[in-house]
Design a protein around this nucleic acid. Structure first.
Length: 932
RNA sequence: GGGCGCAUAGCUCAGUUGGUCAGAGCGCUUCGCUUACACCGAAGAGGUCAGGGGUUCGAGUCCCUUUGCGCCCACCA
């Protein structure tokens, strides 16, 4: 499209994909200083982020949009500042999630993974991955992500698998990995173990069941081990009579696995039973009554049934007392032979049936409603059962210690800081990490068991024989590793570890780890632990945590609630820049944000504003004929020739821009990206577009100001585009291209542009001005703004048609010459007739039939014949006076207090100046009242 | 049980060394198609910054406390 035909509205649809392709093809996303190339300079500082790898079969949601926007902002900012910037993209094989999807597909085909077998299942899953795995990456591209796609990684690809193997073997050799039967969380639906973190607790209504643990009558023969017999049945009628210990439970079916009843050693009620034997209901199994201080005397009945096989606390107690451990549930949560007559029943059926049987046997005391905290699988959602199972674990304490220290001593910083405490708390109480999963999709555990000597072989290369006895009869462990084991290696495995690659040497440790706080433990903590363990270095020096995205009323987005916002649809309708800007500016670190489409719409409008302001500037540049188009007019090399010609507006906008650049820099350094974006937004829209551009229209009509005005427009626009680029890369790039073209400079990509810095700003506009010139210019301009606003206000109040140019007389006092210089600007902004505008130092008397305004020490008279009502005028003046007097009173009181003595001088002076201002205003108002 | 966050204009939210910090967007009222933009411009209404106490010359901003909402960790059967 030719530069003269830019459309009136920003067309993001036709722009975004074209711009992205240009960036990607142009290689702008690659680090400019690459250790694999001959011209590599090791002294250039790198800036590196590893992307939180999305699930390979996932689809883009707002969580992805959030982290991509934030990380792209960080990356682009640092790239513009000259860092050799690398953003490593990739995806996670996501063991459970992916396997579930493929299993669902198989079910639709009428088959199952068990039916087709492991090998075929894996083949199908890879097929699935190759088909859908690229989807999410392209969706991430749509967000504008400037990652180096040539360095894309997948947790199951060859290099990363080698890293996983190496990591496992090293931990094993160091004795930090062990295998053994432990009480773990078992997900019966997924038929795998899951880690503590993968269990979520939900409060649900349930019942507390009270029943009797009958004491074994002393007369009976002690060794009656038959679990169930005709004899027992015969005793049913007599059950419930005689001595018993009352016990409460929320899971009656676990009674079948009880191996003791515990009471507090000092509980007077039950002390006498300690050491005695009680009978498991229905089964009649004999179990001891033990004493343990863990038991709370206040809760329930004060007696606790002990099921070491299915409860973590009971397991601990069982260990202390050497109790046998019974597994009464199998991998599908069906009752095992331990459950005697209940064997084969589902856990919930068993609960009902057993309880009914106990009722019939007179062993039930009561049931009462009780709120349970039900452990559910994070993935499948079904109730998780604690079970004894042989699994692989990482001995985590030594790793946790180092990870703790890295944050404590400041080598790693977490933003916002409050998450450090949460991090500490978790690591200080961490338990060994169960890393084996009974799945097929994932990194298979590199352990081979020997059928002959029974020993394990753990090696970096697949063995053909037992390392201990040489037997060929070895078989690999069927399980795979927890997905988080491989993602825990991500920052360095993606750079080539365990090889000492040039990438690893140069880009590691990475810089920021940006992710949601919800995976602080799952991922961040593990990366720190594993990073320190395997590389001896921290994996990143800063952790930036963003919050969760909720709907506009703070509700969690969920499909069932129907309040899910699809980022792809938002981008389709309102543009990527609008979505990015909304996510970036609307959020603060670590806090959830509520997203509403009206916000995105507002930011779509902002993108359009950038577009149109850009269009205006480009047109202005193009309209400037001749005037040295061969020079790059905004680089500053030619600006000296405007010295002495800058108008108040020119100086003001430049001074404001300098302040903006400084503020933005400070905010970026302190991770306050949202605040920075807000400031840029405000400056661009309110200061630049609403004021400077309007004034520039007038200035450009004057031959003597035209060129410098265009230069100012171009330069301010240019810097705003740079400042905005990390937030809204597409529209800024597009305008940048057109602006560059208009300026006849080389059409280089925006990404190669420098971030605005102090060097640029101090050189312009008037380097020979005394220190602190900005404050005066800003104050003068603000006076001008106040005057304009007051006049507009009065006009609106009086119903003066906006198109009507009116006369005005101004008594400027000490500001007279300033206002005289600004007469034309003032006239055009306030709708005054320049030829009927007189600006004097003071007036001998008040003009007739004029409405009067006072702005600071400046008096303005607008002759509005026919519209001036004396009474109304007096009322208005009186109101203004009352307001001024109120301020005077307040300030006088303030300045008479300790404030004047104790507050810093500049603060006090500021208040004094305010007081003086109000006093002048009041004085003028009084005079006008007298004259009216 | 322990810890944390949030309560600021009708709605959604900014406001990080305590001194224009009382703001933004949307919504609302009144004008306006002024050749960058109606995805716009101008003017305006609207809040004792949840309640109470304290520190300070000065607090939305620090401390204590109360109330309401939310989250995390632990998991007393």
């Amino acid at each position: 499209m030719s530069k003269h035909e830019l459309p009136k509205a920003y067309d993001f649809k036709s722009t975004e994909s074209r711009i992205y392709a240009m960036w990607e093809k142009g290689g702008y996303f690659k680090p400019h200083n690459d250790p694999n190339k001959p011209d590599f300079d090791p002294n250039v500082e790198p800036f590196v982020i590893s992307i939180p790898p999305p699930n390979v079969t996932g689809e883009l949601h707002l969580g992805h949009a959030m982290f991509v926007s934030m990380e792209d902002l960080m990356i682009r900012y640092h790239r513009m500042k000259g860092y050799s910037t690398l953003w490593v993209p990739g995806s996670d094989h996501a063991g459970i999630a992916t396997q579930l999807q493929v299993e669902r597909m198989l079910r639709k085909e009428g088959t199952s993974r068990e039916e087709i077998g492991r090998e075929e299942f894996l083949r199908r899953t890879w097929e699935w991955k190759n088909k859908y795995g690229g989807l999410i990456q392209n969706q991430i591209r749509r967000l504008g992500a400037s990652c180096d796609w040539e360095r894309e990684r997948f947790t199951l690809d060859e290099g990363l698998s080698r890293a996983v193997r190496e990591a496992f073997v090293r931990l094993y050799e160091k004795g930090l990995i062990y295998r053994g039967p432990r009480l773990i969380n078992w997900s019966p639906g997924l038929k795998t173990a899951v880690s503590d973190l993968e269990v979520e607790y939900s409060e649900e209504p349930g019942k507390l069941y009270y029943f009797k643990y009958m004491l074994k009558p002393e007369t009976l023969t002690p060794l009656r081990l038959l679990p169930f017999s005709e004899k027992m049945r015969g005793e049913k009628e007599g059950g419930g009579e005689g001595e018993y210990i009352p016990v409460a439970t929320t899971r009656p079916e676990t009674i079948l696995g009880d191996t003791a009843v515990a009471v507090h050693p000092e509980d007077e009620r039950y002390r006498k039973y300690i050491g005695k034997t009680v009978l498991v209901p229905i089964l009649g199994r004999e179990i001891p009554v033990i004493a343990d201080e863990y038991v709370s005397r206040e809760f329930g009945t004060g007696a606790l049934k002990i099921t070491p096989g299915h409860d973590p606390n009971d397991y601990e107690i069982g260990l202390r007392h050497n109790l046998p451990v019974l597994s009464m549930l199998d991998r599908e949560a069906k009752v095992t032979e331990v459950g005697g007559p209940y064997a084969g029943l589902d856990r919930f059926e068993c609960r009902e049936k057993l309880w009914n049987d106990m009722k019939a046997a007179g062993l039930v005391i009561k049931e009462e409603p009780y709120t349970l905290n039900v452990p559910r699988s994070q993935r499948g959602g079904e109730i998780v059962e604690p079970m004894i199972s042989t699994q692989w674990f990482v001995k985590i304490a030594p790793l946790a210690e180092k990870a703790l220290a890295a944050v404590k001593d400041g080598r790693i910083r977490i933003v916002p800081e409050r998450f450090e405490k949460i991090y500490f708390n978790w690591l200080e109480n961490i338990k060994d990490w169960c890393i084996s999963r009974q799945l097929w999709w994932g990194h298979r555990i590199p352990v081979w068991y020997c059928a002959d000597c029974g020993k394990e072989t753990v090696t970096r290369e697949d063995p053909t024989e037992c390392a201990h006895c040489g037997s060929k009869r070895i078989e690999q462990d069927p399980d795979v590793l927890d997905t988080w084991f491989s993602s825990g290696l991500w920052p360095f495995s993606t750079l080539g570890w365990p090889d000492e690659t040039p990438d690893l040497q140069y880009f590691y440790p990475t810089s920021y780890m940006e992710t949601g706080y919800d995976i602080l433990f799952f991922w961040v903590a593990r990366m720190i632990m594993l990073g320190l363990e395997f590389t001896g270095k921290i994996p990143f020096h800063t952790v930036y945590l963003h919050g969760l995205i909720r709907d506009e009323h703070g509700k969690k987005m969920s499909k069932s609630y129907g309040n899910v916002i699809d980022p792809l649809q938002v981008m389709d309708e309102l543009g990527t820049d609008a979505l990015r800007f909304t996510l970036l500016v609307g959020s603060t670190p670590g806090n959830d944000m509520n997203l509403s489409l009206s916000k995105v719409e507002a930011n779509r409008n902002f993108a359009n504003k950038i577009w149109n302001a850009g269009r205006f500037v480009i047109n202005a540049v193009n309209a400037l004929e001749g005037a040295g188009k061969e020079v790059d007019r905004y680089t500053g090399t030619q600006v000296d020739k405007y010295i002495g010609k800058w108008t108040l507006a020119d100086s003001w906008i430049w001074a404001r821009l300098q302040a903006l650049i400084r503020d933005v820099e400070r905010l970026f350094q302190t991770f306050q990206y949202g605040q920075a974006g807000q400031l840029i937004y405000d400056f661009f829209w309110s200061d630049f577009a609403d004021w400077y551009v309007e004034i520039a229209k007038g200035q450009m009509q004057r031959e003597e100001n035209r060129e410098q005005t265009v230069v100012t427009l171009a330069r301010v626009m240019d810097i705003c585009l740079r400042l905005l680029h990390p937030f809204t890369p597409f529209v800024t790039e597009e305008i940048w291209g057109h602006l560059r073209q208009a300026l006849l400079t080389s059409p280089i990509s925006y990404l190669a542009a420098d971030w605005p810095n102090a060097l640029i700003i101090t050189r312009w506009p008037e380097p020979r001005e005394p220190e602190g010139w900005e404050a005066g210019k800003i104050a003068d301009f603000e006076l001008l703004q106040d005057i304009v606003r007051s006049i507009r206000n009065l006009r609106a109040e009086k119903g003066v048609a906006p198109s009507k140019r009116i006369a005005a007389t101004i008594a400027g006092g000490v500001k007279t010459s300033l206002l005289q210089e600004q007469a034309e600007t003032l006239a055009s902004l306030a709708g005054l007739d320049h030829s009927l505008l007189s600006i004097l130092s003071s007036l001998p008397s008040k003009p007739e039939n004029a409405a009067a305004l006072v702005v600071g020490a400046v008096e303005i008279y607008l002759p509005l014949s026919g519209l001036v009502n004396l009474e109304a005028e007096r009322a208005r003046l009186q109101k203004d006076l009352a307001e001024a007097e109120a301020h005077i009173q307040r300030l006088e009181k303030l300045l008479a207090s300790d404030f004047a003595k104790k507050a810093p001088a500049p603060i006090v002076q500021k208040e004094r100046d305010k007081l003086t201002g109000f006093q002048e205003t009041a004085e003028k108002l009084r005079r006008q009242l007298n004259a009216t």
